[in-house]
Design a protein around this nucleic acid. Structure first.
Length: 856
RNA sequence: GCGGGCGUGGUGGAAUCGGUAGACACGCUGGCCUUAGGAGCCGGUGGCCCUGAGCCGUGCGGGUUCGAGUCCCGCCGCCCGCACCA
C-alpha cells in the first residue's frame, strides 16, 4: 500500500491524546515531589480579537519549541496560556453593534483556544486566565489596593494626553509621534485629575537591573533611553518682586555664567500668577491658551520657529547676580525637569534660536567652535569668536568668574555645582525622563478601580473583602468625555465603607496594561481563590526563564511588568525583582514586503494554511523562513517546501517502520521496537549514523538558547537527505541479505533520530512516526545525546592553500601532526604547480583544518 | 540630531573562535517514472572567458593579517527606536 503523509488524520488523533491525558499539565505539588528543575516558558498573552494571525502562529511555534525541548531535557516546564481580554477594540465594536463587549471577547477567546489546540501547542489549560473575568480582575484590584497602601498610587491633577477619538486619557508610553497609539488621532494636552502609579520612584532600579537580565541589547537600550537618566544640577533662581524661587534642572551648570534669560513652559503653574494684573497679562494668557490647545505633534516639531512672550519679570542668576528676563515659551516642556530653564544661547542651539528671534544677548563662556573655521579665519580666533556660537562642545571657561576662567568646563561643572550647594542655591542631582504611569481610562471595558468617593471622608479604598468590584452591565457604551460607567447610576451610588454615609464609586477603569503587568504571576497559582497567588509557589516558578513576544512591547508592557515585580517584592508579597530573566523578541511576518492588514488585503490566515498543509508544516515553516528574531516575508511556495520535507520524512519513517519496526493498526501498536542504535555499523550505514549524530549535535546547539531554529530545521533536512539516499540504495538490495538487514536498521535509527529532532517543531508528525518506528511516545523520550565516537573521524579533508587561495584538498589522518600536514601539503601536485619558481617563505598549519603555503 | 541594527547568488538565508563563501530551502532547469500530473525520484544551478592548475566575487574605498563576509578606519544605502529632554 502506498504511504501518504496525511496531517489531517494524524494531527487530530494526537491532539485528542494530549487533551484526554492532560499531557501538558504540571501540578505545583510536583515541584517538590520529583526534584526536577522548574522551567517557566512563556509567550506574551494574546489580545483576543477575531481570529489568531500568523504573528501568533510564529510566537507560539517558537515558545512551544522551547517548551518541548526543555521538557525532553528533563525539566518540569510551566507553559500556560491566557487572554488579555479587556480593551478598546471590543468596546468600540460594542459601540458600533450594541453587542456587549463580553460576547465578542468570549467568542474570540473560543476561536483562539480552538486554533491553539489545532496547532498542537503544548499548553497547560488548567491554568488559563482571562483578564476580563472577575476571578482574575478581583486580584488586579487587590494589587491596586496594595500599591495604594504602599503609597505608589496617586490621584492628582496634571497636564495629560487626551485622545479625542478614543475619548480617554493615555499614558505617555501610548503616545507615538504625538498621536494616540491605537486611534492615530493627534493627542491634546488637558489638565485633568487622574490616577497615576509612581513608576518614577523606581527609575534608578529599573535602569540598574537591566544589567542582570538576558534581554536583547536593543530592547535594553530602548528602556534605558526611555528612562532617560541625566546627571546635572538643580539651580535656584530668585524673583525679587514676588519673592519666589524658581528651580531649573540643567546638565550644564558650567555654562551658568552664560545665562542671559529664563524660560518657563506654558503649563507652568506660576506663569499666569507672574503676569496677573500687569500689562503683559492679556498677551501671555493668549499665548498660553494657544500652546495648551495645540496638538503635541505640531508643538513638538523640532524645526518649528521659536515663539514666546516676555513676562515682564526677572530672576537673579545665583552665580553673578545678573537680572535675567523671564519668558514663557512652548519649546520648554512641563514634562521634563521642573518645567523651567535657564537659557544659555551661547551654548545651546534652541536657546540660541530663541535669542535670535527676540533680540536677546548671546554670551560666550566656553572657548571652542563646532566644525571647522571658515576659510581665511584663524582657527584660534574663531574659537573665541561670537560668530562661531552656539558652541555645544567642551573647552576652557572664559568671561565667567576669575576663579573659573581657564578651567576646562568639565572640571568647572563640578566646582560650580559644589559652590552652589555651599551657598544653598542648588545641588548636584539626577533627572529622569520617565514620567509616572497614568493608569485611569474614561472607558467601560476595563477593570473597575476599587475606591469610592465619600462626601465626608474623601477618597476611600474599598476593604479587600468587598472585592471584586464587578463591572456593571450598561446600555450605552459611548464615552461622552467621561467614563460610560458614570451613567450606571445605581452602581455608582453606594455607601462609604468608613463612615457609612453616601458615596459614589470611581467610574474610571484601569489601563489594560495594568492587567497584563502581573498575569505571569497568576499562572503560577491560577486556581487560588483565596489569594492572588501563594508566594511559596510563585517564588519557585519565578522569574520566567524564557519570555517570547513582539518587540513592540519593548517599552510599554516590559517596563510596567518590571515595575510591578519590584513594587510587589518591596511590599513583601513576592520575591522576584525581575519578571523575565531571558527575553526573545520575534520578528514580524510580512506579506509582499508589507505589514499584513485587512485593508491592504495581504493577510495570511493560519487556519487556511493549517487546513491545506497541516499544523506541523505551518509551524515548521514559520521558524524555517529565517532567523526568528528577524522580519521575514511570507511565501506560499516556502510552506510547500517545508511540507514536502515533512512528507518525505514521514514516508521514510513509515516505510522503514513497516520493514521491521512496530506496527500500528487503528492506533494500536504491536511489534518490537526496532529503531535502536545499530551495534557496529559499517560503510554507508556508519556514515548515516554519523550524520544522525552530527544532526543531534547541531540541533541541540541551535536550540539551546541560540534560537537558531532555521538552521536546526536545515540540519534535520540534511539528515533526511542522507537518510533518503541510503534508503534508495538499501531498497535495491535483496531483503534477505545481511547487508539489507543492517541497512534497514541504520535507516530506522536515522529516521527515528530525525523524527525525534523535529519534534519540538512538528510534534504530531513526530509522535506518529516515532510510535510507528518504536512503539514509544516521542514526547516522553529524553532528548537524544550525540556520541563522540560518531562525531570523530579517522580522516578529514585538509584544505591546501597557496597565498591564502584554495588550491587543493586532500584526505589527512585526524591526529596528524603539524609537520605531517605540512608534508602532505608540499607533496600535492597542484600545490607544487603554484610553487614553481618561487621560494617558500612560511607554512601556516591549522591542525584539523588547513595548510597555507606562503611564497615569494 | 542621539541610540541600536543591517547590507552575502534570481529569492529567503548559512558560514559557531580570523581559516573551504553560498549549508538548507524557494525558484529555474535537464532527466527518470507515468495514460497524465500541480505526485514521487535522480541530477544541475554565484558571475565571466566557458580553454584552465583559470579569473572575479559578501554595498563602496582603504588598512591589519600567511589568510577578512567576519577585525580596524572612512564613505554610501536601508531598517527600527527616541527626539525642542535643557
Amino acid at each position: 500500500m502506498e504511504l501518504r503523509y496525511d496531517p489531517q488524520q494524524i494531527e487530530p488523533r494526537w491532539q485528542q491524546v494530549w487533551a484526554d491525558e492532560r499531557t501538558w499539565h504540571v501540578d505545583n505539588a510536583a515541584l517538590d515531589a520529583d526534584g526536577a528543575e522548574p522551567v517557566y516558558v512563556l509567550e506574551m498573552l494574546p489580545y483576543p480579537s477575531g481570529e489568531p494571525h500568523v504573528g501568533h502562529l510564529k510566537n507560539y511555534a517558537i515558545g512551544d519549541a522551547v517548551a518541548h525541548f526543555r521538557r525532553r531535557q528533563g525539566k518540569t516546564v510551566l507553559h500556560p496560556m491566557g487572554f488579555d481580554s479587556f480593551g478598546l477594540p471590543a468596546e468600540n465594536n460594542a459601540i458600533k453593534t450594541g453587542q456587549h463587549p463580553r460576547e465578542a471577547t468570549e467568542a474570540s477567546i473560543a476561536s483562539f483556544q480552538r486554533q491553539f489546540r489545532e496547532w498542537g501547542v503544548s499548553i497547560d489549560w488548567d491554568r488559563e486566565i482571562a483578564s476580563h473575568r472577575p476571578d482574575y480582575y478581583r486580584w488586579t484590584q487587590w494589587i491596586f489596593l496594595q500599591l495604594l497602601k504602599a503609597g505608589l498610587v496617586e490621584r492628582r491633577s496634571a497636564a495629560v494626553n487626551w485622545d479625542p477619538v478614543e475619548e480617554t486619557v493615555l499614558a505617555n508610553e501610548q503616545v507615538i509621534d504625538g498621536r494616540g497609539e491605537r486611534s492615530g488621532a493627534l493627542v491634546e494636552i488637558r489638565q485633568l485629575e487622574q490616577w497615576f502609579l509612581r513608576i518614577t520612584d523606581y527609575a534608578q532600579r529599573l535602569l540598574d537591573d537591566l544589567d542582570g537580565i538576558g534581554w536583547p541589547e536593543h530592547v535594553k537600550t530602548m528602556q534605558r533611553n526611555w528612562i532617560g537618566r541625566s546627571e546635572g544640577a538643580r539651580v535656584v533662581f530668585h524673583n525679587e518682586e514676588l519673592d519666589r524661587d524658581y528651580e531649573v534642572f540643567t546638565t550644564r551648570p558650567d555654562t551658568l555664567f552664560g545665562a542671559t534669560f529664563f524660560v518657563m513652559a506654558p503649563e507652568h503653574a506660576d506663569v499666569l500668577a507672574l503676569v496677573e494684573g500687569t500689562e503683559q497679562e492679556d498677551e501671555v494668557r493668549a499665548y498660553v491658551n494657544r500652546a495648551l490647545t495645540a496638538d503635541r505633534a505640531e508643538r513638538g516639531a523640532a524645526d518649528k520657529p521659536k515663539t514666546g512672550v516676555f513676562l515682564g519679570r526677572y530672576v537673579v542668576n545665583p552665580v553673578n547676580g545678573e537680572r535675567l528676563p523671564m519668558y514663557v515659551a512652548d519649546y520648554v516642556l512641563m514634562d521634563y525637569g521642573t518645567g523651567a530653564i535657564m537659557a544659555v544661547p551661547g551654548h545651546d542651539q534652541r536657546d540660541f534660536d530663541f535669542a535670535r528671534a527676540y533680540g536677546l544677548p548671546v554670551k560666550r563662556v566656553i572657548v571652542g567652535a563646532d566644525g571647522e573655521a571658515p576659510e581665511g579665519v584663524d582657527p584660534e580666533a574663531w574659537a573665541t569668536s561670537d560668530d562661531a556660537l552656539p558652541y555645544t562642545g567642551d573647552g576652557p571657561l572664559v568671561d565667567s568668574h576669575p576663579e573659573f576662567d581657564g578651567t576646562p568646563n568639565r572640571e568647572a561643572l563640578s566646582a560650580i555645582t559644589a559652590w552652589l550647594a555651599g551657598e544653598g542655591k542648588g545641588e548636584a542631582t539626577v533627572n529622569f525622563r520617565l514620567r509616572d504611569w497614568l493608569v485611569s481610562r474614561q472607558r467601560y471595558w476595563g477593570c473597575p478601580i476599587p475606591v469610592v468617593h465619600c462626601e465626608a471622608c474623601g477618597m476611600v479604598p474599598l476593604p479587600e473583602d468587598e472585592l471584586p468590584v464587578l463591572l456593571p452591565d450598561i446600555e450605552d457604551y459611548k464615552p461622552k468625555g467621561r467614563s460610560p460607567l458614570a451613567a450606571a447610576e445605581d452602581w455608582v451610588a453606594t455607601t462609604c465603607p468608613t463612615c457609612g454615609g453616601p458615596a459614589s464609586r470611581e467610574t474610571d477603569t484601569l489601563d489594560t496594561f495594568v492587567d497584563s503587568s502581573w498575569y505571569f504571576l497568576r499562572y503560577t497559582d491560577a486556581r487560588n481563590d483565596g489569594a492572588a497567588w501563594d508566594p511559596a509557589v510563585t517564588n519557585r516558578w519565578m522569574p520566567v526563564d524564557q519570555y517570547i513576544g513582539g518587540v513592540e512591547h519593548a517599552i510599554l508592557h516590559l517596563l510596567y511588568a518590571r515595575f510591578f515585580c519590584k513594587a510587589l517584592t518591596d511590599i513583601g508579597v513576592l520575591d522576584a525583582q525581575e519578571p523575565f530573566q531571558n527575553l526573545f523578541t520575534q520578528g514580524m511576518i510580512t506579506k509582499d514586503g508589507a505589514k499584513m492588514s485587512k485593508s491592504k488585503g495581504n493577510t495570511v490566515a493560519p487556519r487556511e494554511i493549517v487546513e491545506r498543509f497541516g499544523a506541523d508544516s505551518a509551524r515548521t515553516y514559520v521558524v524555517f523562513l529565517g532567523p526568528p528574531d528577524q522580519d521575514a516575508d511570507w511565501s506560499d511556495e516556502g510552506v510547500e517546501g517545508v511540507h514536502r520535507f515533512l512528507s518525505r520524512l514521514w514516508r521514510l519513517a513509515a516505510e522503514a517502520a513497516e520493514l521491521g519496526g512496530a506496527t500500528v493498526v487503528d492506533g494500536v501498536v504491536s511489534g518490537a521496537p526496532g529503531a535502536a542504535l545499530p551495534d557496529d555499523p559499517q560503510g554507508d550505514d556508519l556514515e548515516l549514523v554519523r550524520k544522525a549524530h552530527w544532526a543531534i549535535e547541531k540541533v541541540s546547539h541551535d536550540l539551546d538558547g541560540r534560537f537558531s531554529f532555521n538552521t536546526a530545521v536545515a540540519a534535520v533536512m540534511e539528515l533526511t537527505n542522507v537518510l533518503s539516499a541510503r534508503r534508495n540504495a538499501v531498497v535495491e538490495l535483496d531483503p534477505a541479505t545481511p547487508e539489507a538487514i543492517a541497512g534497514w536498521a541504520a535507516v530506522r535509527y536515522a529516521a527515528a533520530t530525525a523524527v525525534s529532532l523535529i519534534q519540538p517543531f512538528a510534534p504530531h508528525l513526530a509522535a506518529d512516526a516515532y510510535e510507528r518506528l518504536t512503539g514509544l511516545r516521542v514526547w516522553e523520550q529524553p532528548w537524544p545525546q550525540a556520541e563522540q565516537r560518531f562525531l570523530q573521524r579517522d580522516e578529514f579533508e585538509l584544505v591546501l592553500q597557496v597565498q591564502g587561495k584554495v588550491r587543493d584538498r586532500v584526505l589527512a589522518p585526524t591526529g596528524a601532526s603539524k609537520d605531517e600536514l605540512e608534508q602532505l601539503a608540499l607533496a600535492s601536485e597542484k600545490v607544487q604547480g603554484f610553487l614553481e619558481g618561487k621560494t617558500v617563505v612560511k607554512v601556516v598549519v591549522v591542525p584539523g583544518k588547513l595548510v597555507n603555503v606562503v611564497v615569494r
